[in-house]
Simulated scan of single mutants.
Amino acid sequence: MFKVTVDKDKCTGDGECIDVCPVDVYELVDGKAEPVNEDECLGCESCVEVCESDAITIEEI
């Protein structure tokens, strides 16, 4: 299981994490990425790699 955190101050809302996530963890909420399906996270960190603003962290719990 993984804990997905999005730093709202850093998030630009470009949606790259939404596009790259294979299991639809993210949705845009008020122009920012929100991990609405955190339980689905595979821990692949594709979202971390494409996030140009370094707003996403994933921790194994």
Rank of each mutant, 00 (worst) to 15 (best):
C47R: 03
D39E: 15
E59F: 13
E52H: 06
K32A: 01
E40F: 15
C11K: 00
V29T: 07
K32R: 02
C41R: 08
E38P: 04
V4N: 09
V36S: 05
F2M: 13
G13H: 05
Y26G: 11
D7R: 01
K10T: 04
M1W: 03
D14S: 04
A33T: 02
G43F: 13
D14M: 07
C11M: 00
C41H: 14
L28F: 05
P22C: 06
G13R: 00
I58Q: 15
N37Q: 12
I18D: 02
L42R: 09
G43E: 13
D24K: 12
E52D: 13
E16V: 02
E27I: 07
V36F: 10
E60M: 14
I18Q: 06
C44W: 12
D54N: 08
V36I: 14
Y26C: 11
V48N: 08
E40H: 14
V20R: 06
V4T: 09
E16F: 10
C21F: 02
V6F: 00
A33C: 02
D24S: 15
E60T: 13
A33G: 05
I56F: 03
T57R: 12
D24Y: 09
D24A: 12
E59G: 11
A33F: 01
F2L: 06
A33N: 00
C41S: 06
S46T: 10
I56D: 12
C17V: 10
I61P: 04
D24C: 10
D54L: 04
T5V: 15
E27Q: 04
G43C: 14
G31T: 01
Y26M: 11
C11T: 01
F2Y: 15
P35G: 03
M1Q: 14
K10C: 06
F2N: 15
K3F: 01
E40I: 07
D24G: 05
P22A: 08
V29H: 12
P35M: 02
C51H: 04
K10R: 12
